[in-house]
Amino acid sequence: MIEVKDLRFAYPRSRTEAVRGVEFSVEAGEVFGFLGPSGAGKSTTQRILLGSLRGYSGRASVAGVEACRADGVYRAQVGAAFEFPCFYQKLTGLENLELFASFYPEPRDDPGVLLERLGLAEAADRRVAEYSKGMKMRLNLARAVIHRPRVLFLDEPTSGLDPANARTVREIIRERAAGGAAVFLTTHDMAAADAACDRVAFLVDGRIAACDSPAALKRRYGKRAVVVEREENGTERGTLLSREFPLDGLGDDEAFRAELRKPGLLGVRTLDSSLDRIFLRLTGRELE
């Protein structure tokens, strides 16, 4: 659904390219996370795909149409939620939603049902100026999905949301993907990316440094080992003891089995990496 090949872009009067040969594709029904530090080129890539930035080289197409030729038909297939939700402050949430939705072809979702799902039904007739940031973020998602787009561009959709609302947002994203939409998710929220994305790409200095499923990346950048943790007996507060065992041959490892039989066992955990750690490692903020 989204095809990007050797994409390059430099802003006018800039000596360096903001995007340097980026390549990826997003299939229908896939949630693709685009992760990276500020200034890495995420927003530039998204703006190119939304048809807002021209003058790039390489290929950037949505549903087979090159982004530089984006027209009304192209944009009708796309839903977008910017990082900073922008609405008519003097109109109510429902008025905003209905106004923007009216410019898209059918079929569309019922705004009332969507607002109810996102916990905004009671605030539907209140002016957006009275909304909290979290409410605006949820309305932002509602506006992006109401016309059932084939491609969804979401920028930090869970920013400023409490865990319950963040979960609802992730559920809606997964549902839209299950319904066949290709979702392009830009975020700094690694937990959200881990929970919602089928694949993630880490963008560093305009280049993709790694791209795979979260599970595969966590294994690749993690350590093939497990840690057994137990509480030492006999001490007043209980001292936490950890012992590491290599994953290879773990079933035959007598020392591992013996450790499991000792009293005070708290748990066993793998040493997979996390997307947070991978992010920090790839962006150079923390060296291993």
Binding site: L50, G51, S52, D71, G72, V73, R75, A76, V78, A80, F82, F84, C86, F87, Y88, Q89, K90, F100, F103, Y104, P105, F153
Partner: peptide, 21 residues
């Protein structure tokens, strides 16, 4: 001016209406 401050004019650019429309 309100639209520009609130970012709404930029959002119209990604709708079928387009910013010039």
């Amino acid at each position: 001016l309100d639209d520009r401050d609130d970012g709404v004019s930029a959002y119209w650019g990604v709708t079928p209406a387009g910013r010039p429309g």
